[in-house]
Design a binder for these strands. Structure first.
Lengths: 242, 242
DNA sequence: TCAATAGTGTCTATGAGACATTATGCA
DNA sequence: TGCATAATGTCTCATAGACACTATTGA
């Protein structure tokens, strides 16, 4: 501890301190649309404007721990969510309060019916990404959202993340396909999708069960759950022409 | 300005300030091996130990600008280099001096014969990555190096970055193939590699010239330079079994 | 001549898109 | 019966790996 104090005087205080925050792009699928969680800012700057949820990193936390805490606070209940670091946005002019470093994350969650407002009575709602991109978000959050969206679209090509958008552990191939269709914004041929996912070793595991209680017609489908594969290889492809 | 001062008192000082640094994994190919630039630390902590080059971000800089400055300082001359953000490493226990945020970058450069030592008289040398990974680097730099290496190996699959390891603007397909072979650590079939790179639209552009002055035997090869393509699609594949 | 590298061409296996066909369920 | 979704199967094209073969140079 005494050494730490000594070292603190060494050269670290020659530099202007900065503040560390985390921001997240929390995606879910709501009413058939890929949506992102936005909060209305309760304080300055950008008061009253919409922003990505986030907050300051506590002195005893890593950013990973901080984002985990934020996720719990925003979604109220403990969800089987997923978060990974996206990119860091920093500079002297991002925030009028000073030099702010924001470590941005991408997080995925099944639909949450009522995300709770934060401590400071912020409103929190899921907004379809198409709409959110057109809004004038606080800070540089439009750019962060754009980057986060691209990450999600790219990453489900080779990582088994799509099932995280589904509420149940077991799901039908049609449900899984719908997730891809919504995120990529294009239709996929059911038979080809089926062949593809089932050909990846250990990606899905058949439960042997069949989905009961269906709303509209159609053959009852088999239920699958995630297998042990950590990578989709060869990856799916979302674009041929693009 | 008065508003800024007011806002500064709003809530930003409720949080422990942190220090912002950048670190880079600067890769090059030296003597047929993928190598990374390491510096010997001149000051505490980890004095005398090897580390990735980096430094504190100045108050008026973004991390991107900071890494650009570091690159210039380390390589002395202005190189056609490339740098992109890798990941941010932060936490209360990474550095005995306090809470340090390090934004890590991946940078690529053609071989630099004599990288200069930094202001604090540090030694700077390129070390083959295989060796560097076995060393006990300062801080969490072993992890950063591992992550940077994986990024390079993955990214040359779909981004036209490999030519950045070559000194000249124009190069032969054999030279380009060798870059891939060194980075991936596996042999590629020359004819298949040729077919692959030439089939990607606008990836390479034939100069019409032929390489003169060859050391050992072999047919003289045509010279190519980078085209306008920003993406290699469909991507190269480095692994089938893996 | 031989060795070494560049460049061309061929065969084959794999994977993905397109799409037909059958199966099963509800209204 | 009609419609909707699930599941199976087939055809074809594009791509990549393996590899044979020719071309061109220096030693």
């Amino acid at each position: 501890m005494s050494e730490k104090s000594f070292l603190k005087n060494y050269n670290i205080r020659d530099y202007e301190p900065v503040s560390l925050t985390v921001d997240m792009t929390l995606f879910t699928i709501k009413s058939g649309e890929l949506s992102v969680l936005l909060v209305e800012r309760g304080g300055h700057p950008f008061q009253g404007q919409w922003a990505l949820p986030g907050g300051f990193v506590e002195p005893n936390e890593t950013p990973d721990e901080s984002i985990e805490r934020e996720l719990q606070e925003e979604t109220a209940i403990t969800l089987a969510t997923y978060a990974e670091q996206l990119k860091t946005y920093a500079g002297p002019n991002r925030d009028p309060r000073g030099y702010i470093v924001s470590v941005a994350y991408v997080a995925l969650a099944p639909i949450i019916e009522s995300p709770v407002a934060g401590d400071d009575a912020r409103k929190a709602v899921f907004i379809p990404v198409e709409e959110a991109l057109k809004m004038d978000l606080a800070f540089d959050h439009n750019i962060i959202l754009q980057d986060g969206l691209e990450r999600v679209r790219a990453k489900i090509e080779y990582a088994p993340l799509a099932p995280l958008f589904l509420e149940e552990d077991s799901f039908t191939l049609g449900e899984l396909r719908t997730v891809y269709e919504i995120i990529w914004g294009k239709r996929l041929t059911p038979s080809n999708f089926r062949r593809k996912v089932l050909s990846v070793e250990n990606l899905l595991e058949a439960t042997g069960e069949v989905l009961q209680s269906r709303i509209r017609g159609g053959r009852r489908s088999e239920l699958y759950k995630l297998g042990t594969a950590v990578e989709i290889y060869p990856p799916f492809r979302r674009n041929d022409e693009n």
